[in-house]
Amino acid sequence: MDPVDDVEAPAVDAARDDLVATLAEALGDGLVASEVQPGVDVWVRVAADSWLAAGVALRDRCGMSYFNFLSAIDWQPSPFGRDMDAQVDGPEANDPGPMEWGTTGGETRFQLLARVHNPATGLGVTVKADLPGDRPEVDSWIPAYAGADWHEREAWEMFGIDFRGHPNQVHLYLPGAFEGNPLRKDYPLLARRIKPWPGIVDVELMPGDGDDESGDDGEGDDA
């Protein structure tokens, strides 16, 4: 959606508001938070206990028959820095700082992230659920959406999230002997420890540029 259309779009989005209302009715307290960007998108955050119920309600009551994806976000920033700059990001762990959550907020380290669609209306919704950092566990979505199978395996492998009732929770991408959960923020990219990133110069300020934010030729990325 283009920003121009944002302005033209109505401030109230009836279809997306209805969706949130239906979910609130179906889940009760299970619906923790929601956010509607009129004409653009809608997010809902449900309690982890209501995760499967939310999937079923979306499928049966909101016509969201299309399963798009399922993944997760690790909101705990890496204790090793962002591995962007070997001079700054040392191998020793630092205090990662407080967690800051995105749209619809959050409470715990992990956040499940799934998206389903209604192919008839073209409406899509992003569903989130908070999971604790020490032992993330949640019901599998396979009873609601058969396609969640591989996505849950991926989330298990990448984040270490357990899906209760998943029939085949084994490695999907990585060799069986692989240790660690790569997409957790505290999983370091060791190759960067050995060799500082040469590309870091690309994002440094050019001499004399100062904090010029307007741009001269509109080209943002070649040095």
């Binding site: 995105g102 749209t103 992003t126 741009g215 509109g218 943002g220």
Partner: peptide
């Protein structure tokens, strides 16, 4: 017309979440 809008030289994307497909 032009093929490039005015954007900052150094791209910093404001905080937020977006999904585009």
């Amino acid at each position: 017309g032009p093929v490039m809008a005015k954007v900052p030289r150094i791209i910093k994307v404001p905080a937020g979440e977006a999904y585009v497909e």
